[in-house]
């Protein structure tokens, strides 16, 4: 990405060359003057926008959930105790309740549900990778005239509601559904397979729903891959499979990682797919959270589960990215 594309925006605006007839431009200009006074210029301004976004839509909700997780459940509206209270108009009383977090350690349910969610997410991610990699590879190596049509086919299902597509799987997988009828008519099986309402159905649902998130980043890396490296390998007598293992695969690692994270993270917290396709014994942290919030009406414990989930998920991933970044820097 060239830096040039970013800088002129800031520079030009300080010179007052931007058209001023749009109110949005006026607002932008005002924000910019503010930023200028605060000592943020050019590049800093561009970077400030995503940070502002994160602050508004990630940190603020996080702080609210954190606050609720430290309160006590009440039968009231809202159903939890206040964290801060003015007593006699002069003392600020702060009551912090860590009991909700201790409670999570008390009962093995939360740990088991979390580990089970990790397992389901991990297996689904692997399935996505196994199916997605050949697809991305085929698209990236296809005739350029075909590529955009093939990519379109990957994205097309997104135009239908996610929920409708998951419901469609119920019709396919159920006892007298499409799949069972097909297999019986082909004479492959005699008794219908019980796939719906099992972990297998959840794997199918998650893999199907998240497959494009795996294919798109993989395609992006594979498409940019320098083909002359493969030609050189062939010239030097390397067989195609070995060339794939030693050249293509390592070079596509960033795509594999990006795709895997895009599938893995939402799959851990998935609620809708296991609820619709999963069996009664499919235990995932999303369902536990739902139960805490809706059935037990215990918002503080539900919030504590959410915070714990976030910490257990985000911290390892952030650490991983940090280490990876350092590795890349070291390589330079």
């Amino acid at each position: 990405m060239s830096r040039k594309g970013f800088l002129p925006l800031g520079d030009r605006m300080t010179e007052g060359q931007m058209p001023m007839h749009l109110p949005a431009t006026a607002l932008l200009r005002w924000l910019q003057r503010l930023a200028y006074r605060l000592g943020i210029r050019g590049r800093g301004l561009v970077i400030a926008v995503p940070y502002l976004w994160l602050l508004l839509f990630f940190l603020v909700p996080f702080a609210i959930v954190l606050k609720i997780s430290l309160s006590e459940a009440l039968i009231a509206r809202p159903p939890y105790s206040p964290l801060f209270e003015w007593v006699e108009g002069m003392y600020l009383e702060i009551r912090v309740n860590f009991g909700n977090y201790l409670f999570l350690l008390d009962d093995s349910l939360y740990a088991v549900a979390y580990l089970n969610s990790l397992k389901i997410a991990l297996i689904s991610t692997l399935l996505c990778l196994l199916i997605g990699y050949p697809m991305a590879y085929a698209i990236a190596t296809a005739d350029p005239a075909w590529r955009s049509s093939l990519l379109m086919l990957i994205i097309l299902p997104f135009w239908t509601s996610f929920l409708i597509r998951v419901y469609a799987w119920i019709g396919i997988l159920k006892q007298n559904g499409l799949l069972n009828n097909l297999l019986i008519n082909l004479g492959l099986i005699e008794e219908p397979l019980a796939i719906l309402y099992s972990d297998l159905a959840v794997y199918i649902g998650i893999t199907y729903s998240y497959l494009p998130f795996m294919i798109l980043p993989l395609y992006a890396t594979l498409e940019r891959l320098d083909r002359s490296l493969l030609e050189a390998a062939a010239d030097l007598g390397c067989r195609p499979f070995k060339a794939f293992l030693t050249i293509t695969l390592p070079l596509s690692l960033p795509g594999i990682l990006a795709g895997s994270l895009l599938v893995f993270i939402p799959a851990v917290g998935e609620f809708v797919i296991p609820e619709l396709l999963g069996g009664p014994d499919t235990l995932m942290i999303g369902k536990v959270l739902w139960n805490e919030f809706f059935t037990n009406r215990d918002w503080p414990v539900a919030s504590a589960v959410a915070i714990a989930l976030l910490l257990f998920l985000v911290i390892p991933i952030m650490a991983f990215q940090y280490l990876q970044g350092r590795q890349q820097e070291a390589r330079r």
Binding site: A73, V112, A113, P280, D281, L283, N291, N296
Partner: peptide, 19 residues
């Protein structure tokens, strides 16, 4: 009571999932 409600939900989860 909320306490009993929680135990009941917990028992239900055990019945559903064996956990």
């Amino acid at each position: 009571s909320p306490r009993f409600e929680r135990e009941r939900t917990r028992a239900w989860t055990r019945i559903r999932t064996g956990q």
